[in-house]
Structures are given as C-alpha cells and as structure tokens.
C-alpha cells in the first residue's frame, strides 16, 4: 500500500514528490466555463486570455540528436532571442489580438 496514503494528501502528495507538467502544446481534455461571481475565486478575476499554443512547424524534435532540428536541413536550430511568447497584434480574420507561444513555451513551474 506504499504511496496510497499520500496520493490525495492535500499538503504533501506523491505528485509533489515528483512533479510533472502537462505537455507543452497539448490542451487539457476538459475546459469549463467560469463559474458565477460569488463562487469563483476572487483571485481569478483578473486573468488575461492567452489563446492556444501552436506546435512549431519549422523545427521538430530529433530523438537521435536529442535536440530540435530544422525540418528542412535536419540541423540543430540555433537559439533565438525571444522572450516567453510573441504578441501578434492582429491575425487574419476576426479573432482579434492573440499571443503565439514560442521559445520558452512554458511559464515558470510553480507547482
């Protein structure tokens, strides 16, 4: 029964002993709408929509070289000077401003 005791422990779960994140470009299986004011946590009032991350198209992971490589040349892609994500002011269509994930696609891990 090792581990069972801690699986749902609210303060020290097994998860926290070996934390794992969600895949970078995957959307969670479930997406709810926000709950009504009064029950929704006060701290969630000031969220900024980030849209959905898009998987990169110009490079892919190479399991042999163990780094991202250019899809055309197969060579490792050089680091680029970008910050956490790039703002695209307007895309074609009427979806309005959006943010595209690039470079450091994951926000800081905070548990």
């Amino acid at each position: 029964m090792a581990g069972v005791r801690f699986v749902d422990d609210p303060l020290a779960s097994v998860s926290e002993q070996f934390p794992l994140g969600a895949p970078g470009f995957a959307a969670p299986e479930r997406s709810d709408a926000a709950s009504a004011p009064g029950i929704r946590p006060w701290g969630l009032r000031w969220l900024t929509g980030m849209g959905m991350p898009a998987a990169p198209t110009c490079y892919r992971y190479c399991p042999i070289r163990q780094v991202s490589v250019d899809v055309v040349t197969g060579q490792p892609v050089a680091p680029v000077a970008k910050v956490a994500w790039t703002t695209v002011s307007q895309k074609d269509g009427d979806e309005g401003p959006s943010k595209d994930y690039d470079w450091e696609v994951q926000p800081d891990y905070t548990g």
Partner: peptide, 18 residues
C-alpha cells in the same frame, strides 16, 4: 494580489494567465 501557485489555467477552451 497574485496566485500562490501556477498563474496559468485552462478555461473556456483557452489558456488564461493571472
């Protein structure tokens, strides 16, 4: 006000940052 944990949630079919 700021979150104690992750500041990214998935809701309304999109990511939202706090």
């Amino acid at each position: 006000q700021k979150p104690l944990g992750t500041n990214l949630i998935f809701e309304d079919d999109q990511y939202k940052m706090g």
